[in-house]
């Protein structure tokens, strides 16, 4: 094994074990993308092959068919307890990106997860975010407390010293645990290759395009690419200068603007 990947893995596994030992009711989020699939794999490794807590998929019903196929296949092969966070009420009322993307995300993702957390009383969630994804992520900690509205007080975060990850006694509703925070996009792909992890076919180029990050069908845009194998993807990332989430950047600005105009009373 590449030495540095081994070091990344060691730190991640130690973190996952810390989370399991410190929190009563832990779960891991899985989006079927490469990062969260690698994280599931790390969870498997941390506990000798069997993930001892539930795996949550936030099911918006708008994800790609390939993602649902991948989910069911892996869940069966790896044998974990899969939970779906799905906002059935909002879907009954025809919630879709057509009603506004931010609105749709809030209802089908945030609220769906909030409800599940409340119902199952989860006090900690493992998330596969990385510091190099975009600016604000760089400010994340390995242990990141959230209040009941999922708010993250990035300006007043608890200090995190050495590898002493501490569960606070108050002031949080649930803890977000980020075991691959220190990995890069390239690290993840190298790891996927080394560990021979299953990869969703959407990541590979078809007709000159491939998906670099996976989300809901109406709101995810493929990037131009000819990379059709993991090796080619690794080569592409090494030479590429566009951020992973470029396809989503304008959506984010638009969502921000909409929120801002609302707060100013325009809408």
């Amino acid at each position: 094994m590449e030495n540095y990947l081994q070091e990344l893995e060691k730190k991640s596994i130690a973190l996952i074990r810390e989370a399991k030992a410190q929190f009563k009711n832990l779960a891991v989020l899985w989006s079927m993308g490469k990062d969260s699939t690698a994280t599931l794999w790390l969870c498997k490794k941390a506990f000798f092959g069997k993930i001892p807590f539930p795996v949550i998929h936030i099911d918006t019903s708008y994800q790609f068919p390939e993602m649902y196929q991948f989910r069911d296949k892996i869940a069966k092969e790896w044998g974990f307890n899969l939970l779906l966070a799905k906002n059935e009420d909002a879907l009954k009322n025809d919630m879709s990106p057509k009603k506004g993307r931010l609105e749709c995300c809030t209802k089908l993702k945030t609220e769906a997860l909030k409800n599940l957390i409340k119902e199952r009383k989860f006090d900690a969630l493992i998330l596969a975010i990385r510091r190099d994804e975009h600016g604000i992520r760089a400010k994340e900690r390995y242990y990141s407390p959230r209040d009941e509205n999922f708010r993250w007080d990035y300006k007043d975060q608890p200090a995190e010293l050495w590898d002493l990850y501490v569960k606070p006694s108050e002031d949080f509703s649930h803890m977000r645990v980020h075991p691959i925070l220190h990995w890069t996009e390239l690290d993840v792909w190298q790891y996927v290759k080394q560990e021979n992890l299953p990869v969703n076919s959407l990541y590979f180029a078809k007709n000159g395009k491939r998906y670099r990050s996976l989300g809901c069908m109406p709101c995810t845009v493929p990037v131009p690419s000819t990379a059709s194998t993991i090796d080619e993807i690794i080569q592409e990332i090494k030479t590429s200068k566009t951020p992973e989430r470029a396809g989503r950047a304008q959506d984010k600005e638009k969502a921000y603007m909409m929120q801002k105009l609302r707060s100013l009373g325009y809408m």
Binding site: A159, L161, V166
Partner: peptide, 14 residues
């Protein structure tokens, strides 16, 4: 040989 003092919000001292 390093430790933290626990506070309500996490580490209170190093």
């Amino acid at each position: 040989g390093r430790f933290i003092i626990k506070g309500k919000k996490g580490a209170a001292a190093a």
